Simulated assay, not measured.
Amino acid sequence: MIRHIVFFSAANPEDVDTIRDGLMMLKDIPDAHHFEVGRNLRSDKITGPQVDVVVYAEFTDQAALDAYKSNPIYAACIAKVRPLREMRIAADFEAPSDG
């Protein structure tokens, strides 16, 4: 299993909900085994630059992640969100399928 985590910050704080709504488009891509988008609760006081929105998804394998990223919905999401974000950090890692 591959876990895919992406952190976003908004260039303008007023755009956080628009970014979150744009990222929710990704839930319609069928290749993710599990998919979530959420606003950062900002409960960690040690964090440096603040993250506003987090995407968390799980994929059965690299082929599923590649299919997700090649879906036209993914491209439409990028077109909507990229102009509004200041920062994007993504990480993918392999995890055991049983958790």
Rank of each mutant, 00 (worst) to 15 (best):
M1R: 10
R3T: 10
H4C: 09
I5L: 15
I5D: 09
I5H: 09
V6S: 05
F7A: 13
F8Q: 00
F8E: 00
F8K: 00
A10W: 13
A10P: 10
A11C: 03
A11H: 13
A11M: 09
A11G: 08
D15Y: 07
D15L: 05
V16I: 14
D17F: 01
D17L: 00
I19W: 11
I19Q: 04
D21T: 14
D21K: 13
G22D: 02
G22P: 05
L23S: 07
L23H: 09
M24L: 14
M24N: 15
M25S: 06
M25Y: 03
M25W: 08
M25A: 07
L26R: 00
D31F: 09
H33I: 10
H34Y: 13
H34W: 14
H34P: 10
E36S: 02
G38A: 14
R39F: 00
N40T: 13
N40I: 11
L41I: 12
D44C: 11
K45F: 15
G48E: 11
Q50H: 12
Q50N: 11
V51T: 14
V51R: 11
D52L: 10
D52K: 10
V53E: 02
V54F: 01
V54G: 00
V55I: 11
Y56K: 03
Y56G: 03
A57F: 00
A57N: 01
A57I: 00
F59A: 01
F59R: 00
A63I: 10
A64P: 04
A64C: 04
L65S: 02
L65D: 04
L65T: 02
L65C: 04
L65Y: 04
D66L: 02
D66A: 04
A67E: 03
Y68E: 01
Y68I: 01
Y68N: 02
S70N: 07
S70P: 02
S70A: 07
N71I: 08
N71C: 05
P72V: 07
P72A: 06
I73M: 02
Y74L: 09
Y74P: 07
I78E: 06
A79R: 15
A79G: 13
K80D: 04
L84T: 01
R85V: 12
E86D: 14
M87R: 14
M87I: 12
R88E: 11
I89K: 03
A90Y: 09
A90H: 10
F93R: 11
E94A: 10
P96S: 14
S97Q: 14
S97A: 15
S97E: 15
G99K: 02
G99P: 06
G99S: 09
G99T: 05
